[in-house]
Simulated assay, not measured.
Amino acid sequence: MVFTLSNGQLTIQVNSKGAELSSVKGANGIEYLWQADSRFWGRHAPVLFPIVGRLKNDQYEYNGQKYSLGQHGFARDMEFKLHEQTDDSITMALTADSETKTMFPFDFTLLVKYTLDQQTVRVNLTVINNDQREMFFSVGAHPAFNIPLSSTHAFDDYQISVDPAKQFDRIPLENSLSAAKDEKLIDFSSPVPIERDLFKDDAVILALNEQPVKVTFEAKRHEFEHGVTLTTNNAKYVGLWSQYDKDAPFVCIEPWWGIADDVNADGQLQHKKAIDKLAAGEHYNAQYDITVY
Results as ranks from 00 to 15, higher is better:
F80C: 14
L82V: 15
H83D: 15
E84R: 14
E84Y: 06
D87G: 15
T91G: 02
A93V: 08
A96D: 12
A96F: 03
D97H: 07
E99D: 11
E99K: 04
M103K: 14
F104K: 05
P105R: 00
P105M: 00
F108L: 05
L110D: 01
V112F: 04
Y114A: 11
Y114E: 12
T115R: 02
Q118S: 07
Q119M: 04
V121E: 01
V121S: 09
V123Y: 07
T126K: 09
I128Y: 10
D131P: 10
Q132R: 09
Q132S: 13
E134C: 01
F136M: 02
F136A: 06
S138V: 00
G140P: 01
A141G: 15
P143K: 10
N146H: 13
S150G: 00
S151K: 07
T152H: 09
H153L: 08
D156V: 00
D156A: 11
D156S: 10
I160E: 08
S161N: 08
K166F: 10
Q167H: 13
I171W: 13
I171V: 15
L177K: 00
S178F: 06
K184S: 14
L185Q: 15
I186A: 12
R196G: 13
D197W: 01
K200E: 13
D201I: 04
D202Y: 07
A203G: 00
V204Y: 03
L206K: 02
A207T: 07
V215F: 00
F217A: 00
E218S: 13
R221P: 04
H222I: 10
